[in-house]
Design a protein around this nucleic acid. Sequence first.
DNA 1: GTCATAGTACTCGGATAATCGTTGTCCGAGTACGTTTGG
DNA 2: CCAAACGTACTCGGACAACGATTATCCGAGTACTATGAC
Lengths: 160, 160
Amino acid sequence: MKMNEGVEWALHSCVNLCWLPEQAVPAAKLAAFYNLPAAYLNKQLQALTRAGILSSTPGPKGGFQLARFPEQISVLDIVVAIDGPDEAFRCSEILRDGPGGNATTDYRKTCLISQTMRTAELNWRRELAAATIADIVAKVERTFPATPENTRRWFEGLRT
Amino acid sequence: MKMNEGVEWALHSCVNLCWLPEQAVPAAKLAAFYNLPAAYLNKQLQALTRAGILSSTPGPKGGFQLARFPEQISVLDIVVAIDGPDEAFRCSEILRDGPGGNATTDYRKTCLISQTMRTAELNWRRELAAATIADIVAKVERTFPATPENTRRWFEGLRT
DNA sequence: GTCATAGTACTCGGATAATCGTTGTCCGAGTACGTTTGG
DNA sequence: CCAAACGTACTCGGACAACGATTATCCGAGTACTATGAC
């Protein structure tokens, strides 16, 4: 079980975009900040755009920027946008193929093993849905007060 | 993010083994119960054996059986045995490659994004660690009282 | 001097390979049982 | 009749392929800016 690596990149990029409001940042610059492969990060940002988390503008002075307020972007939103909506544990309803299996019943709901795995994963999703980008940004600014200004300056410096 | 499919098979097989105590059940029979590929299920049962969850005996009248009491086998134990111990979200510490990155600090602990993902996943693990095979068996017996006897009879019938 | 126009550089976007992990299969090592053979 | 040895069938165990998803890369469509030339 391995989550798509792009989730980490997307989360960090969204946090950085919070500190660069009112401007579009190209994928190449966001990638250069962490020395990431630019083309691949671009692919992830495209997924965020399709999900309505970012908005993109092509051409010179173009790039990506947040499409919503940070308070309205949950960590789960980004995970789903990059990693897909499917659950990790997928009940294949093997009880149906066993003796006494019924073709009509939905074993995803009746099977107690499925229920156990499902509720655990649902709570995981709930926790990630409660955490917003704004929360993370606030914690970073409280823990490392210099980070926002440093980040802003780094991107400004690259701009020249 | 997709969990190994064998986890579901392993969980169901362990529950079935609870109803067949004092005897070794070969992988082929456990697979036939759900029409699963026998050789591949065997592979998963091997992993459970390596983890100390099952004990195996080769030769005629051989097979697998629980190595511990069902109360001492958590769902997490089985997940870890089959799917591996690695976490789904793996912080690659990209902050180190960014400006102001330090080579000595452990960003898995300081990075707030990593913390958020980590605690959510830790809670997920905690929940699965609290659920034992005995719990699931008890719930099944309470919800479907006929299942244990039916299962036992099915395996006995195949034995002839 | 001013405006229109052509050119250029830059950006996203999707289509296209390479790599890794999961899925699936196979054959060999070892064990217990049944059978046979000698005493 | 009894016991020991042999052969056979069955099981796990790990090594070996096939498939699919993730990872990575590249080129084309479109846009805004810039430079140039005509009026």
